[in-house]
Design a protein around this nucleic acid. Sequence first.
DNA 1: TAGTGGTCTAGACCACAGA
DNA 2: CTGTGGTCTAGACCACTAG
Lengths: 251, 251
Amino acid sequence: MTTDHAPQGYEAILTALRREIAAGQIAIGEAIPSEAELCARFRTSRGPVRQALGRLRDEGLISSGRGRRSVVLETVPVQPFDVALSFTQWCREMGVRPGQRTQRMMRRPAQRAEADALELADGEPVVSLLRLRLADDVPIMLERLTYPLEVGQHVLTFDPDSGSIFERLLGSGVDIHHATRSLDAVAADAEDARLLDVAPGAPLLRMQRRAFTMDGRPIEWSDDRYLPGHARFASTTVRGAVNSLSLLRGL
Amino acid sequence: MTTDHAPQGYEAILTALRREIAAGQIAIGEAIPSEAELCARFRTSRGPVRQALGRLRDEGLISSGRGRRSVVLETVPVQPFDVALSFTQWCREMGVRPGQRTQRMMRRPAQRAEADALELADGEPVVSLLRLRLADDVPIMLERLTYPLEVGQHVLTFDPDSGSIFERLLGSGVDIHHATRSLDAVAADAEDARLLDVAPGAPLLRMQRRAFTMDGRPIEWSDDRYLPGHARFASTTVRGAVNSLSLLRGL
DNA sequence: TAGTGGTCTAGACCACAGA
DNA sequence: CTGTGGTCTAGACCACTAG
């Protein structure tokens, strides 16, 4: 669902700068052009220029401050929303071939944790999947997905081994607007161990996710368990910018 | 290092709205005042109002879009920079009593991984600490901190059981400007197991962090291992907003 | 002191959602 | 259709940094 038209307005400035930084045309530690120079180059006023620079700052790509030139930081790449939610998109971005082996797909009554997460009554029907995800044919992650029936019907009529459920849902008009994620570590249970080919009790990195529509209805609940060493999560925090990763107390 | 003066300009709008949302004066799912209303209320133009709203959007507190009113989301709290970097600050925010039991503090030559992370030559002197961190006297996290000597000297002349190293460094004029963090899961080694009181091999949530000055010099390298169940990391991602948590390939 | 980025003003046009 | 938020313009003043 990524539009690949040449961006206009402040997004043109944003992608141009992002590209130049990524390509190393502006080295780490070097100053980017001043706002005045960017205004001239893109024939625009300061508004759009500052909008683009603000985004780069929030992403941790540059550092700026009163009186100083803005400077390129050593940085962790920031991923767009789609990549953040879709294993398939993530693989593409990483240059590996995404794969999946669906273990189970079923319609059944919601268990308590699922009902809570999806804001359903206990026992209401949900669609649940258990899929092993592969990168270049190597098992990397085990995902347990749960959808309310209304959403899950689009999944039931879909071959889950054929590609991205996320893209399928978007194509079906399901509007995923925002998501919350929680990261912790768990010991592999028997099923995890068998499918990911590790010893029972081995440490796994778990990401639990809830996805919502614009009006706040939960439409997906997932429990993804990653093999450490094959995947990790990263973030950059800059003083004065937004910091979207929080440390919370236990469940 | 948090200034507590009454904020001015767009920050006044920001904190006012944040407070109202936090206090539940605007319930989840409800619309916040329109931009025009906020302009009138704060006697300002759209610029500052939009600056405040943009921040709230990036933080995942509200959702907005063309033609629609902006709406309060169910949300994960966003933590300021200090809280994100300081266990002591985090505990205060969470309403628990921070504690620490320093196991080791020493000056020694850098090991290879440390030298890499701090951009030092192999064997250059560093200051390293091993501290068990407690919340309400319960062990929660084991931290291994490493500083280049130049920074570490401020730590050596400090009683590490007396409080926050982060605050000590800020007070010594060490300017921590940005940080990168990486999250994965590891099995507890013998030392971890003994200090955190778990079985060897038990899963731990690991956060590795590098902190930098404004000009990009690394000034801290840390490896924090959290007991799962006592702490987890969370993030909210909103379509169109910045997403500062990235999934990366293995190390 | 000259130039920078941070903030603000007071307008404007547009795409879109909801009544 | 009206009002909303998204974007843009062309100015302005300020605090600050670097030369």
